[in-house]
């Protein structure tokens, strides 16, 4: 067992963990942060994506001991004072989720993408989300959600074909 001290969603925590314990297991099993989920065992799906010191990581690919002394943000730590993070709001607005299982990772990765590139093109969004799998949406509305969050779309209600219209050409 190894002692680790870290901050998760603004809370200081300290635990003894097995050296082999993955960060995602620590979050789910020790802290009850079940908003972060496990979708695969080969680090392909990205469902477990969290931020480590503000940068996205797949938490199945990080040992809990590697997070010692660092700051972790999960999907549960995004909303502040009852207000959704703009990317959370965008996913809801643009119907960027269906079953919602990939959503925590997809939102965390999208935030990271926008942190690095606030006005991404459609292709940059698609490449930026390549490490996150979704089986429900066909990615169409996830891409719209990221465009919306970046201010490149306005919602257009009542349209049968889609949800949002582009403000600027992609």
């Amino acid at each position: 067992m190894t002692r680790i001290n870290l901050t998760v969603d603004g809370m200081k925590v300290s635990d003894d963990v097995e050296p082999r314990m993955l960060l995602v297991q620590y979050l789910r099993e020790k802290l009850g942060k079940t908003g972060t989920v496990v979708g695969c065992d080969t680090s392909n799906c990205g469902a477990c994506t969290v931020h480590l010191d503000g940068e996205s990581v797949k938490s199945c690919n990080v040992l809990a001991v590697q997070a010692d002394g660092h700051d972790v943000t999960t999907i549960e730590g995004l909303a502040k004072d009852g207000r959704l993070h703009p990317v959370q709001e965008a996913f809801r607005e643009c119907h960027g989720l269906q079953c919602g299982f990939c959503t925590p990772g997809m939102i965390m990765q999208s935030i990271d993408l926008l942190n690095h590139n606030p006005q991404p093109s459609e292709q940059e969004i698609r490449v930026g989300l390549e490490g996150n799998l979704c089986r429900c949406t066909g990615y169409h509305n996830i891409v719209r959600a990221v465009q919306y969050a970046s201010g490149q779309l306005v919602a257009a209600a009542g349209e049968a074909g889609g949800v949002a219209e582009e403000v600027t050409p992609a």
């Binding site: 942060k33 079940t34 908003g35 972060t36 989920v37 999960t74 999907i75 549960e76 995004l78 909303a79 959704l84 959370q88 996913f91 809801r92 607005e93 119907h95 989720l97 919602g100 299982f101 959503t103 925590p104 939102i107 209600a157 009542g158 349209e159 949800v163």
Partner: peptide, 17 residues
Amino acid sequence: DRRRKEDARLITGRTRW
């Protein structure tokens, strides 16, 4: 095109898998 009732919990990790 109502936004979904389901989403509030799903986008905040307040899920019951």
